[in-house]
Design a binder for these strands. Sequence first.
DNA 1: CATGAATGAGAATTCATTCAT
DNA 2: AATGAATGAATTCTCATTCAT
Lengths: 221, 221, 221, 221
Amino acid sequence: MRIHSFFLHTTARCVIKDQAKPSRSNNDKYHQILNAAIKVFAEQGYHKATISQVAKAAGVADGTIYIYFKNKADILFNFFSYKTRRVFDRFKEEVETAEHAEDKLRNLIRRHLGEFQRDPNMAVVFQREALQARYIDEAYIKDITKMYLDIIEDILVQGQKEGSIRKDFQPGLVKRFILGAVNEVINTWVVTGIKYDLVAMADPLVDLYFKGIGIKPVQVR
Amino acid sequence: MRIHSFFLHTTARCVIKDQAKPSRSNNDKYHQILNAAIKVFAEQGYHKATISQVAKAAGVADGTIYIYFKNKADILFNFFSYKTRRVFDRFKEEVETAEHAEDKLRNLIRRHLGEFQRDPNMAVVFQREALQARYIDEAYIKDITKMYLDIIEDILVQGQKEGSIRKDFQPGLVKRFILGAVNEVINTWVVTGIKYDLVAMADPLVDLYFKGIGIKPVQVR
Amino acid sequence: MRIHSFFLHTTARCVIKDQAKPSRSNNDKYHQILNAAIKVFAEQGYHKATISQVAKAAGVADGTIYIYFKNKADILFNFFSYKTRRVFDRFKEEVETAEHAEDKLRNLIRRHLGEFQRDPNMAVVFQREALQARYIDEAYIKDITKMYLDIIEDILVQGQKEGSIRKDFQPGLVKRFILGAVNEVINTWVVTGIKYDLVAMADPLVDLYFKGIGIKPVQVR
Amino acid sequence: MRIHSFFLHTTARCVIKDQAKPSRSNNDKYHQILNAAIKVFAEQGYHKATISQVAKAAGVADGTIYIYFKNKADILFNFFSYKTRRVFDRFKEEVETAEHAEDKLRNLIRRHLGEFQRDPNMAVVFQREALQARYIDEAYIKDITKMYLDIIEDILVQGQKEGSIRKDFQPGLVKRFILGAVNEVINTWVVTGIKYDLVAMADPLVDLYFKGIGIKPVQVR
DNA sequence: CATGAATGAGAATTCATTCAT
DNA sequence: AATGAATGAATTCTCATTCAT
């Protein structure tokens, strides 16, 4: 798995203008290029993808890309800091709509799978390039990671208070356990060709998180 | 998560010779280069690493590498088909030493974590480059993946027969669930700097697999 | 040394309009851009300077520059044919205010140093780019060069008639000798940071031109 | 004028190996490329010249240049620190073969003109690119410059002691006066097409340095 | 077998110039 | 006239791969 956590409290949504010089007309071109890039990165991998490919996919000239992005790495950076930020914001919102821990987790997972299903290219690039710490500010990535894990942690703590979640485990491990499984499920979906309904995996997955695969010894009795 | 399954029944062990021209004594040079490459790939990433760096790390000339490997990609291919093959063979052996499903799974996970802990460079490259399917024959990777998942499947089926594992789940999902968690745990260990004892995570992890995080309503009764 | 001679008899002063499309009011914009360009060229060098930098310095849009100048090289061409032309016209005028050869040379040198001191950017660009014959019509530059040398020649001839200047030398060499020294003095002033009073060098320099550094053997007698 | 002074005490002659990776066979290739580069730079100017042009002129592939030089600027740097260094060493040697100030100056000028005549491309590049402080370490260039001026200064001081040179002038100005004239003479020779015998200018030039262009009023009497 | 200098295709990036608004 | 976004040719530099020694 590549990215663990993701989420941002950030209130400032339109960071876009920061690096984009052209102010007047088409701010679309920024997104045009960003989306084209993500598509190409998804197909080729960030490294193998060339600016020319991205330009062609975006329907602009090579040089145009440098009007909207500092350089190739900056495209990836914008993907993480802008595109995924929006997604992770939604995760937190989604969680807040539920009351109890189990529902919160279910909402989170459902939304997680849902957002990636909506934008498979994003999913691919995210899974693959995210922790490739080399390209983007490592600290920045760790931040998003931590935030996602923090949402889970809050849910765990609440669940323990509510009596629906065990207390005899290492929280750090459980967080990986949860995140790892979702990611693997997403990855498989991506690798096998984005065919089936990803969101449908949410409920069975949460069921597994809670009940495990074992048959309760209680029943033995 | 990057690689899902890995394991090879392959009886033909010395496939190495297939593409390596040198037959005589220094078959060491093959391993010399392979290990150096893995080290460099772990540090730089496959793409960023150069043949010169690998050559220098291996203590050979650039040209020498092409005596033992077809090209740069072939080094990675050999890493997967030779180096990891040995590891995944051991997984199966390990599993066979146990009798019951739960013990088999525990052995598998323990060994999995153990092998990666023993060779962190391998772990890094594996986690990062494995499903970067672009470099290696995708089908081949899927094969290894499938084999690992097959071991798990066998364990699940056995467990269900033995009555220790539930039957009401999608086997495909459970396999990802198990594999994803291990991989995430390994990844975290890699990303945070290979500091703590990875194998110690095995038992708590298997405990989670079996019991989940929930408190069984049954016990209420 | 870079530029040797410069001076223009040209009666047609407003050649400017030739290539500049805009005819109406803002002929200022032409100068605005020209001066900004000289400043930027002085700081960056002609080649390294970009049209964008010039535009920004001139407070106009990039495209606007192409309304007043054919292309980048044309800016430099205009610098030489318009801006320096005015300066070199003044040289000749200045020379004419004196009667005797020695005073004429003194006036020329004084004015030469004075004009460059007044406009250091012009000095820098002139010294650096002038004979970079590649950018501007070489013949044209040679013309300006020749005119400056011609002023000197006239002075020399007059001096010889007046009996104040030797006759036993190659005029061509003497002209370079005179021009080279002034230019070197200007260059040093430019390179060391435009700090001291350049015009103050005129009298000592002319003194050296006339008397040389040697002690006259005559005095031995 | 471009470069003022040049000269190096350096005893270490073979600095070449420092940046050239290839050690074995052809150290010629270093010079092959360097000379080709100087030729191309002389024709095109450093900026306008492309690596491809240099490579073609040197009869090697583009990439080969980067085996011997860090980058384009490094070629120019090597030109100054290696190629011209040798020349300026000779200047000092030449000066030392004479006893009296006037002979020393004559030797210096003769040699200066001679070396540039021998290698016109070097002359062109030197004159044009030398003080283009932008490309090469400014301090370094200032050093060479200062050394040349220092040779002149030593000669001046000696001449004053010997009674052959006046004492009533600013040494700084005289140094520019001498250097400027030589350079202008070289420049003219370069610009007019490298046709006539440059060295033949040495004696008349030194004559002008010493006697100036004036007719000494003393003799009137 | 081993070497490492040479190669040249390929990639990122820059910037003069154009043109629709 | 003025603008500045868009263009794409051109340039520097990298690096996998080859091959003469």
